[in-house]
Design a protein around this nucleic acid. Sequence first.
DNA 1: AGGAAAACTTACCTATTAGTAAGTTATTAT
DNA 2: ATAATAACTTACTAATAGGTAAGTTTTCCT
Lengths: 190, 190
Amino acid sequence: MSARNTDTKEEILRIGKQLIQFYGYNAFSYADISRELNVKNAAVHYHFRGKEDLLMALIQNYIDNYQLLAQQLKASNLKAIGKLDKFIERYSMLCETNSICIIGSIASDFNTLPNSVKEKVTELINLVMSLVEQTLSEGKRKGELAFTEVARTQALLLMTNLAAGVQLARISGKKDYEAIRKAIIRQVKV
Amino acid sequence: MSARNTDTKEEILRIGKQLIQFYGYNAFSYADISRELNVKNAAVHYHFRGKEDLLMALIQNYIDNYQLLAQQLKASNLKAIGKLDKFIERYSMLCETNSICIIGSIASDFNTLPNSVKEKVTELINLVMSLVEQTLSEGKRKGELAFTEVARTQALLLMTNLAAGVQLARISGKKDYEAIRKAIIRQVKV
DNA sequence: AGGAAAACTTACCTATTAGTAAGTTATTAT
DNA sequence: ATAATAACTTACTAATAGGTAAGTTTTCCT
């Protein structure tokens, strides 16, 4: 038999993330994951009892990841624009692969999800929103950014531009995403 | 037997639209429709051979609807802000029922759809985008609106704010949508 | 009134989905 | 070395999905 893969669990998460961002939560199955990993679907169930548990772990992964980003940005000596760039870059990468952000993907399927997942998504949204909002308001305070809306509203505008930007890019092309990306920066530049 | 319903086809479209906006394309089945209509699922297949055909008809419905709106706005003597309001109102109504726009819903499932549907969605997007873009540029020309981006980019920003706005509202609440809606207007007001 | 066409129902089918119970193999700790 | 545990596979479910063929009922047209 082939050598045992000790990080199947992480591989499942990696593939699950890819699938949800490319096809959507209700459009992929455990069979898709097990096929790509060359294991049986029961192996996926071993690591994540049900699809709901996998989704929960996936969202938690995102939360951990954004918490890490928040720390890194705090520790860095980047200006506000640089910090926003680091954030926006993630969406640009999604766009490259015709994928959409997990928040947008889940938002579409939101009404089919159990409450536990809904709450976890809310946690993720709150984290991302406060990261963007703080970056914006701190940047404004330091004179590195300029905008007229309150920081929270400006963060909402920025977030929705990005989230729907990658969605739209799938349909009408990547140039539209690029136009949005540049306009976002112009909106907050001094 | 009960009286025959002669507009089953339109009812199917109505319910299908509701389901796709509330649950998403890959999360509803013909059984959901037939149950609500008190017919058998074969009856749904009689009117729309397959799910793909139903989706096509649904998108065509939207196209017709937006073409009508474009005509109505052209024929009206509303100012640009008033025209935008008519457009935005549609999203506000979606938000009220925890629904999202069909474009956002389909964008999430885009990579699972056959090419015929993809092309039809592109047609819809182009129509909506040109409606918004024209309203914006005409408003600017008449001095009723003011913004610094080119009209096409401003339309992209507005569209993405709305599309993701209703998505976000599902998760973080309707107040966020309201904040976005008001900010959109401020962005283009003279 | 009678026939054609429309609008269904009945009764299937096949594929897939999420999931489980029980057994097997490999790894680790003692 | 061995027992426990982790990481699987084998071999199933039951439910649902999307779909079809053939028959029945209703409506429309003449």
